[in-house]
Design a protein around this nucleic acid. Structure first.
Lengths: 184, 184
DNA sequence: GTCTATAAGATGATAGAC
DNA sequence: GTCTATCATCTTATAGAC
């Protein structure tokens, strides 16, 4: 395997294990075993397990928003885009077996690492800004102000993801989508 | 210390450490040290660390709803009770340093224990039922149906708690409360 | 740059004295 | 029922050979 392949392979395995088992319950030994590389190779690419976590979160953040853009690109109506945002999250939760939001999960596991804290905040701020941009164009009913509607959609979505992780289904994400439809 | 005192002391320390540091990052050694008891005493009262976790969650669930009842008892209007529910969660988050919901935290840390899963679900189902009961009496605006309004309040509250854990403030819980006020 | 071997410490849990 | 001492295992991380 080339240098880049090894790094990608490690990130790939770590991303899967951190999400499925949790960061603290995933040992370095399991990562190297499933990636089929030597321990020294991992520490050649990443200075520590924490650094591997940071790299995973940075990578994931980029891929997640790229995936969202791609998912929404077939819609032109901002209202439809907002509703499809829920579909994106529903589809991913089904695929990923209802583990909930990867950033929320890590946030619950890690208490003391400021770099992790910053990356989680950044992800959520970006998501809310993404919603806000669409709300400005989509808010016609005017039941709520643009800012209030942005918060409402953001919080309903976060709440729905929270429920997905707890109840292992997408019922609340579907409900949230329907509620947003009524408020637009 | 009497037998009951020891058990209570262990639960007390475990509750604090599991919430502040996380379950997986809290070792049995730290629990016995801070509780000032011997390791064998802990294992006399609890068969395993998992059993201690279960006892903590059961205990916490009861105390949490008792605290809620107590907090809301001075209000008679169901609409005021619903809004005060948000105040309860805001007050607790300030007190507990924005760690988010204890059940959500545990749910994110533990993947494979069905007893934990059941207790988390039970807590959330009870919270939603609590809201539903108040919504039936409070929903006058009829912007949303009773069921839709119940889900909306529940999800806004969960989303707000999620934000508290991430942003380390109660801004979104306050926003959620204001939104609910408009929808009632 | 990747390998094996190992360090140094923490983990959950138990045995046996008193 | 509480104590001390210890077990076996797992943890992250490093050293040194090739």
């Amino acid at each position: 395997m080339s240098k880049i392949d090894v790094r990608e392979k490690i990130l790939d395995v770590a991303a899967r294990l951190f999400y499925e088992q949790g960061y603290n319950l995933t040992g370095i030994n399991q990562v190297i075993e499933e990636a089929a590389i030597a321990k020294a190779s991992l520490y050649h690419h990443f200075a520590s397990k924490t650094d591997l976590l940071i790299a995973y979160l940075e990578d994931f953040n980029i891929k997640w928003f790229a995936g969202l853009d791609n998912f929404l690109k077939s819609y032109t109506d901002p209202k439809q885009k907002l509703l499809a945002f829920f579909d994106y999250r529903i589809a991913r939760q089904v695929e990923r077996n209802y583990g909930g939001c990867a950033f929320v999960k890590i946030n619950a596991e890690i208490e003391t690492e400021p770099r992790v804290q910053a990356l989680v905040e950044e992800n959520k701020n970006k998501a809310r800004a993404y919603i806000h941009k669409l709300v400005i164009q989509a808010n016609q009913a005017k039941i709520l102000s643009n800012d209030a509607l942005t918060d409402t959609i953001f919080l309903l979505m976060e709440g729905g993801m929270n429920s997905a992780a707890i109840f292992k289904n997408t019922a609340d994400l579907e409900s949230a989508k329907k509620i947003v439809k009524k408020l637009l």
